[in-house]
Design a protein around this nucleic acid. Sequence first.
DNA 1: CTCCGGGACTAGAACGTTCTAGCGACGCGA
DNA 2: TCGCGTCGCTAGAACGTTCTAGTCCCGGAG
Lengths: 359, 359
Amino acid sequence: MSPSSSGPGGKRPTLADVAERAGVSVALASIVMRGTKGAGAATRERVLGAAREIGYRPDARARLLRSSRSRLLGVQFGLQEPFHADLVEGLYAAAEPAGYQLALSAVAPSRGEQLAVEALLADRCEALILLGPRVPAARLAEVAAQVPVVSVARRLRPPVAGVDVVRTADGEGARQAVDHLVALGHRDVAHIDGGRAPGAADRRRGYRTAMNRHGLGDRGRVLPGGPTEEDGAAAARVLLDADTRPTAVLAFNDRCATGVLDIFLRARVSVPGDVSVVGFDDSRLSRLAHIDLTTVGQDIPRLAGEAVGRALARLEGDAASGGGASEGAGPGEGAGPGEETVIAPHLVVRGTTAAPAGG
Amino acid sequence: MSPSSSGPGGKRPTLADVAERAGVSVALASIVMRGTKGAGAATRERVLGAAREIGYRPDARARLLRSSRSRLLGVQFGLQEPFHADLVEGLYAAAEPAGYQLALSAVAPSRGEQLAVEALLADRCEALILLGPRVPAARLAEVAAQVPVVSVARRLRPPVAGVDVVRTADGEGARQAVDHLVALGHRDVAHIDGGRAPGAADRRRGYRTAMNRHGLGDRGRVLPGGPTEEDGAAAARVLLDADTRPTAVLAFNDRCATGVLDIFLRARVSVPGDVSVVGFDDSRLSRLAHIDLTTVGQDIPRLAGEAVGRALARLEGDAASGGGASEGAGPGEGAGPGEETVIAPHLVVRGTTAAPAGG
DNA sequence: CTCCGGGACTAGAACGTTCTAGCGACGCGA
DNA sequence: TCGCGTCGCTAGAACGTTCTAGTCCCGGAG
């Protein structure tokens, strides 16, 4: 009765089994399973029925092996990055309607990016989507020579051939945050930066130019920070000990901002009463009722959608060019120059910002 | 020069290309690439050199297709679960030395467990490791009829044939936490539970029996909670409004505890001065300096190791039985009864617990 | 009646590996 | 000298699909 109680050998059923049971050829069974046209209605029904009865399940690997296209997108992501988790979810949503599958490869302290990428390449992924890659650009170029690569959130300058970049306009996001704070009346706005994290340089720069534009360049302050709660907490402690405290803080991201909030809370510094705090990412964290963080939202569905889109564009471009009439001289012949897609962020105002006390 | 600038067709190099370049047969090239014995030292060198020169990379799918063993373990995990992220890292570490690869399939709001498992099965995984699965036991049984399944952190009673369980002794962990608090002098210890989350029932029970054993059964209190910060925060608000506040709180997990800490902090309830708080998991979160949470640690490397171990045991057991002399009558013939591996937790004392004020 | 088009279906060759035979040569004990 | 095992190697058949090139049959146009 149960689908599994079929073969004595315990072998998983194959297309040949289905075909035999339905009394057709393997090729026709394949046609039916794929939903292609070329089979009669009655036969179709019969094959489908047979497949269901013996619990047939197509073998993805054999399928991919035969067809030159694997329709597989490799995704490298950081296990400990909540933001990456959100992006991966978006990628699933974007890839599926295009008929592509995702192959996930995690990066963790004990599992470097090199290893993660090797695994994806061995799996015959047609393109790679790397979330916030940290490896040197030269390494990315090497990989891109073999397969199209999309770098999400990590900017590359100069551009690398074969590597497209999809990122949020980090500078613009920082500007929006500063504008919001200044509009509330703040003049002493500090920035806790992200160190060497992807996007940190742009946010830092965006903060600086925004402050200058408001004529507050000399009151600006950048504190060394980082992407984790710990980094935010450390920077917050520095602020508490400083001679003059800012009335508002723009943190590198939400995790960093959370660390800041926690330290302020412990020090009885009221938020937003004494100090306003702004994060970056609009992660699930910031939406929690008790955190209720004002933050710069990254458009995760669009980031994911564009990442998949860039990858597909490369793939179909490759397919179209084909024979290659151009006798390209230099290296990276097949890979076009890296393009950059920049997506606008939007400020999400919540409960951690208000007019300064001294107004 | 560069590995990729080889074939004009842009096709990725195959074993046949390597063999041709090295002037040997495909079979021998295969032998060398696998590192099996059966090739001379000089030839080995030559083949390896050829492979390096043309940038050969074995095709994992073709390899798996041919050998009946896929040496692939499917892992289903929750994208938004930090605890799962830690487990996955442990699984990588455990699977690699055993010569197994991991295939990751994420569960997210928009991607159910059913879908995640289908993908893994289509990938020909030899066994499935499910992290905190939420699907009904009947569904697990269906899957287990096709392939060995290990459920991590989710207990199954009665046991399901073909599904092994690897979990922490949740009840024991709760006991340790209560013992610790009582030893510090607490008598009013409340528990914010995990609702229907995996492990929640055991922790609840463990808390109750521990309280009873200390003769504090009537002073115990269980508040409905859940696995997220939000759940912890909500329960904490309830506690603040209550007529009598406990002097200590055992939260379902670290995320939940974090929500509690945050609400207490805002309400100027000092931790551990006024109230002690204990979490569960010993996640990265709890280790952050500014959180510094006392928590019940789950032994993640061992959980991961045992999960892989159980899966391999099933696989090798299957391989050993082979022909199947036993004329098994009932269903689930190949699948033995589900075994349970329970791993001891250990209390990690940090800064959120102390003797009660009035003590 | 013949011929052609097309729909339903099939045989067999890919795809890139691994595995099973087996082949020749060489060394060694009888 | 003759077996005989071992080493280095090769040819060819799997594995489970998809794709290419048909074959067969039927109906309608010429």
